[in-house]
Amino acid sequence: MADTNMAGGGVSAPRDAVALYETHRAALRASKRVWNILALAAFAVCLGLSVWISQFYPERLASGVPRIFEYFGTIIPDLEWSNLFAGRTEEGRAVPGSLTYWYTDFWTYAALIWETILMAITATLIGAAVAFVLSFPAASNLAPNSWVYILSRRFLELCRGIPEILLALVFVFMIGIGPLAGVIAIAIHTAGALGKLFSEVNENASARPIDGITAVGGTWMQKMVYAVVPQVAPNFFSYAMLRFEINVRASSIIGFVGAGGIGQELNRVISFYSDDRVLAVLILVVMTVTVIDLISERIRIGYIGRENFS
């Protein structure tokens, strides 16, 4: 309200200023109230439309919610304490109620999780390499000319614009079912997402070392390698590690469209069975993601600590 006060008090006598202030205030409050009511009405309309379009009606919900709990009931494993750690019988059968029985396909899952992690590493490395190369022409302060700048920016936007899983769908069609489609889809998305972050880091790099290398007669490439890369490397590294964590998640679900990894198995057990296998795979996926996050965090902090980077 300070500005209204000043606008009134600047020219007129004190008493007028108070009156003016009061009228201004009242007008402002009234217009604000109108806006608030309008916004609330718009919100209510949106909410009503959303409920209607997605048919989110109480009776549907009432019939759906019990089924949700029913479903979660079916995927809980039937564990018996007495048999929990029982091994296989002499015929090679697992005892019902034991962990071995629950995780009959453990080694299949483990192999798929291993594949998932490999997919994430490969996609992160390839995507980060492309992002690294393009982040210099895509930084407004470093681009050698505006053509290269615009082209590399647009290319990176294109790469991150399309959701990974849609890209994976297309690649599965092109090169067939398997992890390759997933790796390529995630790598493309990673290139786009990291390219944007990297180029923002580059734009914040100090110009002084760049001037220094220009003054010794350095080429554009030499300026990048000697003056920019040493400044930005720690940030690049932590962004790439964060992206790796995201990519582990992405590669664990990209199998839904047939693009490899544990997602393929997850999709299969959820779609075709309603039993404890669903929970078995889900637990493994959540554990993998958590462990990878912890490791990656340790590496990140270790590296940054070593580089005295704060």
């Binding site: 002084r208 070392p209 220094g212 003054a215 000697y226 400044q231 490397a233």
Partner: peptide, 27 residues
């Protein structure tokens, strides 16, 4: 051939000193 030194030195802070000096050889 026409070296320049700056008020703010314009070294590459995160490179070691000898590499900074060696950048003088880049051409």
């Amino acid at each position: 051939d026409c070296a320049m030194i700056f008020q703010q030195f314009n070294l590459v802070g995160r490179l070691d000193v000898v590499t900074n000096v060696l950048t003088g050889r880049l051409h």
